[in-house]
């Protein structure tokens, strides 16, 4: 691993994962734009850590950029997790609620 070849493979996989499934051109643009949105959004979130200290923010930003490349296209996961399946939404609501209570009670 780590060779030029595997990086190329990675990029190729990154691109081809979009085209699998329903690959009409307009759906493709949606997926590509969505992925880029998520990337930018995660970078913005990472940059929030500057309010604690600026070097920490930079380190986390770099880590996020790395993670984005490693974990490939996230848009499929995002789409799955945001589907309107009742059980899934219930699960996420419970998590949210627990996090809110935990943060406000013990934060």
């Amino acid at each position: 691993m780590g060779s030029i070849d595997s990086l190329y493979d990675k990029v190729k996989r990154f691109v081809t994962e979009f085209t699998s499934g329903k690959s009409t051109s307009s759906a493709m643009t949606g997926y590509m734009t969505g992925e880029l949105q998520i990337v930018v959004f995660m970078m913005i979130l990472a940059s929030f850590f500057r309010i604690f200290s600026i070097p920490l923010g930079m380190v986390i930003l770099a880590a996020v950029v790395g993670a984005i490349f490693i974990f490939g296209p996230m848009i499929k996961t995002i789409e799955d997790e945001n589907s309107s399946d009742l059980n899934r939404v219930l699960f996420w609501v419970m998590i949210y609620f627990a996090v809110i209570i935990a943060v406000t009670l013990w934060g």
Binding site: K22, T24, S26, A27, G30, Y31, T33, G34, Q37, I38, F41, L45, I75, I78, E79, N82, I100, V103, T104, G107
Partner: peptide, 28 residues
């Protein structure tokens, strides 16, 4: 006036905005 109240509300709003538009991009 509670601590963290505005932060919780802000984070929900940011997540809603981003997930909403990203999902809107994917719809046909």
């Amino acid at each position: 006036t509670l601590p963290f109240a505005k932060e919780v509300m802000l984070s929900i709003s940011v997540l809603t905005m981003m997930l909403g538009v990203v999902m809107a991009m994917l719809q046909t």
